[in-house]
Amino acid sequence: MITMSHYLTFSALLFCISIAGIFINRKNILLLLMSIELMLLSVNTNFIVFSHYSNDITGQVFVFFILAVAAAESAIGLAIIVSLFRKRNSIEINLINKLKG
């Protein structure tokens, strides 16, 4: 019998794997964006699990909004990456120091 704890454990595991992905792939900005997508996926799974087991549809409405905002975020992020690559011919994170922050 699959209970709520199974789903929540799976979701926590996926979130921790993507945290490790952000540490490991800190040079490659595209893999960083993919790790962020994985995190959003695990959070959405959490929302849907709670929505299913509490018999309340509001969680799924929230997942709908999160999906829309995440699509907008990745579109703008990829546009920034393309523009950066055209200007500097590389997308390495440690070379992005134009703003001298």
């Binding site: 709520m4 490790a20 540490f23």
Partner: peptide
Amino acid sequence: SVVTSLVMFAELYMVIFYHNFTNE
């Protein structure tokens, strides 16, 4: 990264396990 994610997973698993969401 392995240490950080293991610590985070242990904390999350403790929350899930001790709260006992199974038959709520």
